[in-house]
Amino acid sequence: MSFALLFSGQGTQHPAMLPWLANDEFVRDMRARLGIDDWRAALADPVWAERNDNAQTLLTGLALAAWNQLAPMIQAPDAIAGYSVGELAAFSAAGAIAPATAAMLATQRAKAMDQCAALVPGGLLAVSGLSEPMLAQLLAETGLAIAIRNGPQSVVLGGPESALDDAERTALTAGAQCTRLRVGVASHTPWMHEAAESFAQTLAGVPFHAPRVLLFSNANDRVRDAASARTALAAQIATTVRWEECMENIMARQVRCVLELGPGQALARMWNQRYPGVPARSCDDFRSAAAIAAWLNSHVDG
């Protein structure tokens, strides 16, 4: 038995994230792609930080750097998954694509999604506390789609801004909790169909490999070979992120603990709420890579 590694998505990035991260080759490459000298200063500007192209490029580059710096201190994970754009770094950590490829693909993925969003501006709305019948009625009334399923009564809806406004009013009236996410595109919904097709064409020319570690996809469950890895990365742009199933698949591996790599603690918090007997922590909680390794090894070796 070992541990699971989860890579965060966008929306919780902040200037103080990953305080232990060193300025390695992956960070320098990310800065060059974005044309910035100080990524922490750039994140202090909310407008810059919430731009889809900036966020996807930055978060993928920082995740690649964080894993590069942490991996030599710990044993290999037993299972890996990434949340939304976090799949790029997750697929790299599992050996399905090279780190440089993941960094390049982040820019291409964001470009394809932004081109779709320019035609139909959209966004995402987190909703919790609605029963399945109420959720079904809300979807029918607004025409929105489920972008992410985090749990039985925890979903993220995606679609045009006006429909999201209507859904938020209706859900709040019904007693639900709603949070508008800091994302300017209707990710993981049919409004991103053209983006998924465009990204699939990009991926057709990219070398893929069978994962060296058990890898779970947002869209296609377990990724077993190069072909399914390529298909999964394109499909998740326009289909529901089934994060609830990802967590169930990982828990079935009987892991001893879970480590979230990225900004914030969203994935660790969801895991701890669902599986309190298997502890999860975020790399964002720690002040050094050595401290992360010490926590992880104490659970894996205990």
Rank of each mutant, 00 (worst) to 15 (best):
S2P: 15
F3R: 03
G9R: 04
G9S: 09
Q10P: 01
H14A: 10
P15K: 09
P15A: 08
A16P: 02
L18K: 06
P19L: 10
L21F: 15
A22I: 12
D29L: 14
M30I: 02
A32G: 09
L34W: 01
L34G: 01
D38W: 07
W39I: 06
A42C: 06
R51W: 03
R51S: 05
N52M: 04
N52I: 01
D53R: 00
A55G: 04
A55Y: 00
A55H: 01
T60W: 01
T60L: 03
A63S: 14
A65Q: 05
A65V: 07
W67K: 04
Q69C: 14
Q69G: 15
P72L: 11
A76L: 13
D78Y: 15
A79I: 12
I80P: 02
G82M: 11
G82Q: 10
Y83M: 05
S84D: 02
L88P: 00
A90Y: 10
F91A: 12
A93W: 00
P99C: 08
P99L: 07
A100D: 14
A102K: 05
Q108V: 15
K111Y: 12
A112S: 01
M113S: 01
M113H: 00
C116P: 02
C116I: 03
A118Q: 10
A118G: 11
L119P: 07
V120G: 08
G122C: 06
L124D: 10
L124R: 11
L125E: 08
E132P: 12
Q137A: 13
L138P: 06
L139F: 15
E141V: 13
G143E: 07
A145S: 15
N150I: 09
G151R: 08
P152C: 07
S154C: 10
V155A: 01
P160M: 02
E161W: 13
A163V: 15
A163S: 14
L164F: 08
D165C: 12
T173E: 14
A174M: 14
T179P: 14
L181Q: 05
L181W: 03
R182Y: 08
R182E: 09
V183I: 10
V185D: 02
V185P: 02
A186H: 05
A186F: 05
A186G: 08
T189V: 14
P190I: 01
M192V: 04
A195W: 06
F199I: 07
F199Q: 04
F199G: 04
F199Y: 08
F199D: 02
A204D: 05
F208N: 05
F208S: 04
F216W: 03
V223K: 00
R224K: 13
R224D: 11
R224I: 13
D225I: 09
A226T: 07
A227T: 11
A234K: 08
A234M: 12
A235Y: 15
I237Q: 05
A238Q: 06
T240M: 12
E244Y: 11
I250S: 08
I250C: 09
R253C: 15
V255Q: 01
R256H: 14
R256L: 12
L259A: 02
L259E: 01
E260R: 03
E260D: 09
P263K: 10
G264P: 05
W271Q: 08
Y275N: 07
V278R: 10
P279D: 08
D284W: 02
D284C: 05
F286E: 10
R287Y: 12
I292L: 01
N297F: 05
H299K: 06
D301M: 15
